[in-house]
């Protein structure tokens, strides 16, 4: 489905990804974990070509996409939910979704999105910039869902949201789990454990662990060493329950 092999990516002079390698299996939710600044967002951006890899190889759906234009990579069937949501604030909710819908997309997808997020249908004519953070996150996820994507890349969907909203977002992602492959970046261990099948931990731009998410969730030492999480994750897990 997705394979990164020895990928190096720079932002200006900074060497962010220093030989990243991992694979994402079809139909599963792979969680990308790591401390702040480890290179999680850059990994997603490199896959999409937004911050192109300088060296290494990225294969997507069996084809190399390392040097491909972002829009071509997305058209292969990738949905992207960025870290800061990046909804178009001056456009209405409906316009945000219409813009995201690629020509030839199945109209039933829009109906599915409205079923999943009924609030977005009610607020269709509202400017996206006037929505709350949680509602904007719904728009960002919905934008990726209006097309039948083979891979969804979701960057920190819980970031900056109140626990009750995090729970709503988790439920929405749980609803789409199994319908597509998901690569999820998430600092919130409770959310990661609730959704993830597989886990990849990165540290200083390198892969340091690949395995199943349950193993990470159960290994406090691993969390403490690479995530600096431990208690914070447990507390978040309790607050969500």
């Amino acid at each position: 489905m997705l394979r990164m092999e020895g990928v190096h990516t720079y932002i200006g002079e900074s060497h962010i990804l220093q030989g990243m390698s991992f694979t994402v299996a079809p139909g599963r939710v792979t969680v990308l974990l790591g401390r702040n600044g480890a290179g999680k967002t850059t990994t997603l951006r490199s896959i999409l070509g937004l911050t192109p890899a300088a060296r290494g190889r990225i294969d997507l759906f069996g084809a190399e996409v390392t040097r491909e234009q972002p829009y071509r990579i997305v058209r292969r069937g990738v949905g992207y939910v960025p870290e800061d949501r990046d909804v178009f604030g001056g456009l209405t909710v409906a316009e945000n979704l219409r813009l995201a819908q690629r020509p030839g997309a199945d109209p039933a997808r829009m109906a599915m999105v409205h079923t999943l997020f009924p609030d977005l249908k009610a607020r269709g004519n509202q400017r996206a910039g006037s929505l709350s953070g949680g509602q904007q996150q719904m728009v960002a996820i919905a934008r990726a869902l209006v097309n039948e994507n083979r891979l969804m890349m979701i960057d920190e969907p819980s970031k900056g949201l109140a626990p009750v909203v995090v729970a709503q977002v988790t439920e929405a992602l749980r609803a789409i789990k199994g319908t597509t492959t998901i690569l999820l970046v998430e600092q919130n261990l409770a959310m990661a454990a609730a959704l993830g099948d597989d886990a990849v931990i990165i540290d200083d731009g390198r892969t340091v662990f690949t395995g199943v998410m349950a193993e990470v969730a159960a290994d406090g030492a691993l969390q403490a060493r690479y995530l600096g999480a431990g208690r914070r994750g447990e507390e978040q897990g309790q607050s969500n329950e």
Binding site: L48, P70, Y71, V74, P82, F88, L99, A100, R102
Partner: peptide
């Protein structure tokens, strides 16, 4: 950039 990330040329 986000327009590109929606698959638009």
């Amino acid at each position: 950039e986000m327009v590109q990330a929606l698959g638009i040329d």
